[in-house]
Design a protein around this nucleic acid. Sequence first.
DNA 1: ATGCCCTACTTCGTAGGA
Length: 284
Amino acid sequence: MWVTCPRSRQTSRPRLMSFTLATWNINSVRFRIRQVGMFLDRYAPDILCLQETKCPDDRFPLKPFRSRGYEHVLLNGQKGYHGVAILSRIPFLSTSKRGFCQKGDARHAAVTVADGGDDILIHNFYIPAGGDIPDPTINDKFAHKLAFLDEMTTWLTGPETDRRSILVGDLNVAPLENDVWSHKQLLRIVSHTPIETERLEQVRAAGGWVDAMRRFVPPEEKLYTWWSYRAANWALANKGRRLDHVWVTPHLVDRLESTEVIRATRSWKRPSDHVPVIARIGAA
DNA sequence: ATGCCCTACTTCGTAGGA
């Protein structure tokens, strides 16, 4: 009599990783290091991708991470503004940082982590905000944002994305109508103009990326990750935008178990205006 | 658009954020 043993079949294969990955625009990692510690204690992601660390690498507060087991660190910071970091309890197989638009600013970091006999590439991005006026001919910041998106499209295509990859970060674009509190009222506001949402869609399509958050929340539902500091009562007004994203290549879609917006951090004392998003990738 | 906020910096005014 035949008895199949799925377990032995599985263990004969290289083990594919199960892990959680968080992305969070922290708006100064030094100013908000206590909130970061609270978040790690409460949600314990295996990997944390931060944006807007606003911190030179030699001033980065590593101790609160190391004491919690986040021993693997990739920093790409600078003085005053921008800056990204990846902090992990999982070892990195390789690390890289890429400059965009011939600027010396710190807006990208990437690592690979083991996944069975293969690996997974994780990109962490902080795309330029783009200033106030959505016209590249009179606003250099908006021109920079569009050039940055075009450079991403050119880079993240073809063989570069034909692998297990995750792209997270503050992309500073709310692409869908229900990624903002009022599509109509924000059409001419930077972050939701058609010129930006079309460029971001080009980046996504060129790499065959899948919008992971929208696999779990249908496009008919509002979904935000950022609420302005200016609103007197951010939760009551609820005039948010989805500026932070998790994308995966098709190779990982079947292993996506969840994405979760951690709205609670926005109510903490002295919060970032962005909240974390956590994605769970299952073992295959 | 809303409302007049938030952080960094050879700091008390300006740049950058979105």
